[in-house]
Amino acid sequence: MRLGKVSAISFDLDDTLWPFRPSVERAEATLHSWLIEHAPNTASVLPAWHTLGRLRDEYERSRPDLVNDYRALRIGSIRLALELAKEDVTLTDSAYDAFYSARQQVEFYEDALPALAWLSARFPLVAVTNGNADLRLTGGAEFFRETLSARALGIAKPEPEIFHAAARAADVHPTDLLHVGDDFHLDILGALGAGLQAAWLVRQNHLETRFLEHCARSPHLTIRDLSVLCRALGGPAELSAGQFRIT
């Protein structure tokens, strides 16, 4: 795909700017330790930290109305664990605070911060996330004009309205907004369906050829890291993930 006029860029966060799984695993391990210390009977319900994820998934299946509210789902699953363990459910909010604080400890991909610095000097940037990461806590907020979350808006990707809200936040027409993300359905098809341009970030090379051929039918840019995006938008050839020069 050849990019059209790009006046602003919106970014997904998890698995686009940093790997999602390590931060959640760290947060669940922190939450597990907190619960064992402050509500010891939860050990019978949560014998290991990774059982927290299974309990959360189980709670989500019982509450499809909360599918896009990650905070409510996590709080509900913590309360459930405390109830099952016959512990004090008033500990729920404090337990969630421990989880949430650890959740914001992310490790940016090598190319992410240099790319954001280069891009933010040239384009308004807006973050668009279905998750609960907070750029003010993870770092990187200085590069963005605004962060739009599914929970705050009550609208989640791939719905067109959240992308249109990003265009308004950047003060551009949707056709002039380029959305960058790792999830082909939520980010790429969602953005294209809303009238935006899209760049699919594929950091891993293990995708099936058949899937890539299917995706190739959609008019989007495919990039392996954000330095490629910078070059596509006029950056110098020496920009690379390993040796990123900001000019």
Rank of each mutant, 00 (worst) to 15 (best):
D69I: 03
D171R: 14
I155T: 13
P47L: 09
A232H: 08
L221Q: 05
Y96A: 06
G4D: 14
S44C: 10
A169N: 09
A216H: 12
D225S: 07
A8G: 01
F144P: 04
A152Q: 14
E213L: 13
K5E: 15
F143V: 00
L66Q: 06
D57N: 11
P19Q: 12
R61V: 12
L17E: 07
Y70M: 13
R122K: 13
A150F: 00
A127I: 07
I75G: 00
H214Y: 14
L153R: 10
A95Y: 03
P47T: 08
A152T: 07
D57M: 12
I246D: 04
T42K: 02
A198R: 00
A152V: 00
A39F: 03
H185W: 12
T138G: 06
D57K: 11
A169V: 07
L46W: 07
E146V: 11
F123P: 01
V45A: 09
T138K: 08
T147E: 15
D187P: 04
E107N: 10
A191D: 05
L226I: 03
N205L: 10
T175Y: 06
L148M: 04
A102Y: 09
S62L: 15
E159T: 00
F211Y: 14
D225V: 11
L239R: 02
L201Q: 01
H38G: 02
H220R: 12
R151I: 02
I246P: 06
D65N: 05
L186K: 14
L125D: 08
I78N: 03
L148V: 08
N41P: 00
A150T: 00
S120V: 08
G76F: 10
F211Q: 14
A241Q: 11
L73M: 12
G76K: 09
F244M: 04
H220Y: 05
L13P: 11
L153Y: 01
T209F: 10
F99Y: 15
A198W: 01
D14P: 03
D57E: 15
P22I: 08
T30M: 10
L192P: 09
T92E: 08
V202C: 12
D93Y: 10
V6Y: 06
V128E: 05
H32K: 05
L221R: 06
A39R: 03
L125K: 09
A156R: 02
P47D: 09
V24M: 11
S218R: 06
P236M: 04
H32S: 06
C215F: 14
L226M: 07
G4C: 09
N130V: 00
A39T: 07
D57Y: 05
S240T: 13
G234C: 06
A194R: 10
T138F: 04
G242Q: 13
L207E: 12
W49P: 14
A98I: 08
V24K: 05
H173G: 05
R103V: 08
E159G: 00
K5Q: 15
A121L: 11
A152D: 15
R231E: 08
G53R: 14
Y100P: 04
F143D: 00
A8H: 02
A169E: 07
A95L: 06
A48V: 12
S240F: 04
E37N: 10
A241W: 07
V128P: 03
I246E: 05
I223H: 04
E83N: 12
A95D: 10
E161S: 13
R61E: 15
